[in-house]
Design a protein around this nucleic acid. Structure first.
Lengths: 187, 187
DNA sequence: TTCCGTGGAGAACGATCGTTCTCCGCCTGT
DNA sequence: ACAGGCGGAGAACGATCGTTCTCCACGGAA
């Protein structure tokens, strides 16, 4: 088994466990068992739990970004690409493993204690807002549309997580349609 | 010092500390010191930490509901009352102590482990959606407006918390204006 | 075969947490 | 003045966590 393969397995397992139970509720021993590696190997790959947490955040960022972009690129027009964001959310919310945005959750859990986690969450959200900004610019919308749609997407994530339903995706999508229409009309 | 006064002080102190540092990061000893009560008195009033957490959630729900309604009632028209929700958020986000919605945070921290916390968070959000629903109904808006505005408010909270700025309140308010206008026009 | 190094399983360690217990000073009633 | 009990401070306890250490089995080189 390759070293990087071990790293990858640890991070993927940690991602699942942290998402399902929360970061603080998952001990190193549970992670060790679930990933099927020895404790020595675990600490050979990562110097501490917090470094695993950061690696998980990077992994989440990559998965999220790639998954979102894949859905968005399937849409034909710029306007449909903006709406595709909410289709991606809808698919995500329906998964059994969905328990809210991992960045919001890790920020809530550790943001006040770990500046690294807080900053990474901030950067992730910033990058999402920039991504929406590009899509909005391609649609010819004014600059204020992107934050509006970003806020809708954030709200849909927390609403769906806490309510335990995926309704919020469709509601947010309909709101987005209205906002896009208004912004394009004003431009 | 009255018994209920002790309870109130414990809950108020716990609310501050849990909000500032996260629930799991605040031990009973720290709470004891900050509240200025003896450990014996603490366990005389509450049987366990989790019961304190639930009391804090109830306290938060009351504060939030009363504060929101006070701001909303100052507005003259039904349409302005809907927008006043976001003025309330704006004032909240500007406070130094603001670190995101306490229910979202506690759900993220303990929702997967504590069904009580998860359910209380769900009920709180549900009650907020109902509240928005009443305001929207008074404005003569169709039923779909309330979830849209609720999602905007949720998104503004997490965006403001993670970004560390209060911009999201104004952006959400402007989006709300558009959504309200569209919904009232359609009705 | 023998020796050595690598890696796995899990015990051990120190810290911390929630919770309980002990001890002691103080206040009150007579 | 004195006995008795109440309450506060904090030690103690058991559990758990992150991290390190110990011990041993195994496999390749001479």
């Amino acid at each position: 088994m390759d070293n990087s393969e071990v790293r990858q397995r640890i991070v993927a397992t940690a991602d699942e466990l942290y998402n399902a139970k929360g970061i603080q509720a998952v001990g190193m021993d549970e992670l060790r068992s679930a990933a099927g590696v020895s404790l020595k190997k675990l600490y050979g790959e990562f110097p501490s739990k917090s470094s695993i947490v950061m690696a998980v955040l990077e992994h989440r960022h990559q998965s999220w970004t790639e998954g979102l972009d894949a859905t968005v690129q399937q849409a034909g027009t710029p306007r449909e690409r903006l709406l595709a964001i909410f289709d991606y959310l809808a698919g995500w919310f329906c998964q059994d493993s969905f328990r809210g945005c991992g960045f919001i959750n890790s920020f809530a859990e550790l943001g006040a204690v770990s500046p690294d986690v807080a900053e990474y969450a901030r950067k992730h959200k910033e990058s999402f807002q920039e991504y929406v900004g590009h899509l909005a610019a391609e649609a010819g919308a004014p600059a204020y549309l992107a934050p509006q749609l970003s806020i809708l997407a954030e709200g849909a994530q927390t609403t769906a997580a806490i309510a335990g339903t995926s309704d919020a995706a469709g509601q947010a999508r309909q709101a987005a349609e209205v906002l896009i229409e208004a912004a394009l009309g004003a431009a």
